[in-house]
Design a protein around this nucleic acid. Structure first.
Lengths: 145, 145
DNA sequence: TATTGTTATACTCTATAACTATA
DNA sequence: TATAGTTATAGAGTATAACAATA
């Protein structure tokens, strides 16, 4: 059954790759717009969304976002100035500052998450079986077992 | 057949949405890295990739990237300084400048496109039928008929 | 007058390096 | 010494407004 393995120039594979690129572009677009509606930049929205799941020390935010810790200082500064995030001391280590969302920050994060309907809504048109197939393909694409 | 329509909190749908987010993050990461290997920023790589398909007036580049035209000036400036892009006059309208890739720019764009193997390689593990299903789902998600 | 591209400006994100306060 | 967070700095992307050349 090697006959179904795509060759390098396989038109179907190329189309799928292109579609994935389109999904990525669309996702980003919608994300930036949703952030903008709350007066946030994309980076600020990403940090807030991360903290809404779980408060984190500055350094760990940087690790999650794969950027330098020095960048996080400014982003959290701006979120803090907006009253969406606050820095808390860490009980065990006085060097560490834990960034946590305020009540309003939690609400904004929730609203942000819900405005990413672009992906969820079209999924509603799929049957459960189709969604399972889709999920498995995405998993395989990400190298998840 | 409304029984298969996912409810708002459907666990499977949420997982798929999350996986799409992961694919988006992964795609971006790989794209930035590929651009970096050529000494380009993500924005520069995107513009170069666009021009490699088709030379475009400055204003149209901005429309495609959904940003202000004034931003394109600087990005094309840097690509031009690297010898990857050149500005050409437009025969019909002397106000218009058409940005086009140089020979080296074309080579770099090709190399960039090929380094996005992350999507293509796992697709090789799918049968033709699976890829068709996957394609149709992506199309539906993007609202393409 | 309207349009194309540019310049000027201000803000944000980013990486690097040096600094501080803890450990 | 080593680590967490910050500051300082410089380059790049972004939007806004004003400008020159052309239509």
């Amino acid at each position: 059954m090697t006959s179904t393995r795509p060759r390098r120039t396989d038109a179907l594979t190329l189309e799928v790759v292109e579609l994935i690129g389109a999904v990525v572009a669309r996702y980003h677009e919608e994300y930036e717009q949703a952030a903008g509606r709350h007066g946030l930049t994309g980076a600020q929205a990403r940090v807030l969304g991360l903290l809404a799941l779980d408060p984190l020390p500055m350094r760990q935010i940087a690790q999650r976002l794969k950027c330098e810790p020095s960048n996080i200082t400014g982003i959290v500064d701006r979120l803090e100035a907006r009253g969406l995030v606050e820095r808390r001391p860490s009980p065990g280590d006085r060097r560490v500052k834990v960034a946590a969302p305020t009540d309003e920050g939690t609400r904004v994060a929730e609203s942000l998450r819900e405005s990413l309907d672009f992906a969820r809504e079209p999924l509603a048109g799929l049957s459960r079986e189709e969604r399972v197939v889709f999920r498995d393909m995405l998993r395989r694409m990400l190298g998840v077992d």
